[in-house]
Design a protein around this nucleic acid. Sequence first.
DNA 1: TTCACGATTAGCT
DNA 2: GCTAATCGTGAAG
Length: 202
Amino acid sequence: MEQATLLTSTYVPRRSFFARPTVELAQNLLGTVLLHRTPRELLAARIVETEAYLGEHDLAAHSHAGRTPRTRVIFGAPGHAYVFTIYGMHRCLNVVAEPDGTPGCVLIRALEPLCGVAAMRVNRLGVERLADLANGPGKLTSAMAIGMQQNGADLLAGPLTIRRFQHQRPITIQATPRVGISKSRDLILRFLIADNECVSHR
DNA sequence: TTCACGATTAGCT
DNA sequence: GCTAATCGTGAAG
């Protein structure tokens, strides 16, 4: 997709878009665009899979431990990035939901590359298929050059932003249990665009 | 200070 | 399907 086309056909939503219940935001982020203006490239990809991590009654959520140095961001203002390191080697990107002071965030689990594919391939050396560039939470942070320096960043200010299409075509949302957790497995909090080629497999 | 563990991935069987 | 890689976090001592 052309950069110019993407920029003119999308817009950065208001803070209120993010200040809503976590499950609602997880569903509404599907079909939106994650855009990263790096010094050299413009990287953009469509969000096709998310997971909600609730502030209460969710043992799998980091915020369940309460306010700690790490979870501070989750309790903060909506529309900010919560980035953490998992297994000592991969980064995961979350979007903070709910009003300021109320915990809740949405894990971005898979993207469909739109712009800057060549740069994404450099960030993901050895990957052949386009669909494999960002079809997992650790893969997409690598492809989109997102690191711990983005933790706490305002997604309305850039260089990392979320953009909505002016005319979003209707999408069919599929809901399933979350992937890769041991606690609160019974909750149906994973959402994906049905029949999309770029969702994480499992 | 110590320690068990995890919102994953890639590679091998 | 199974597992090594690899280290920050948070709870316990």
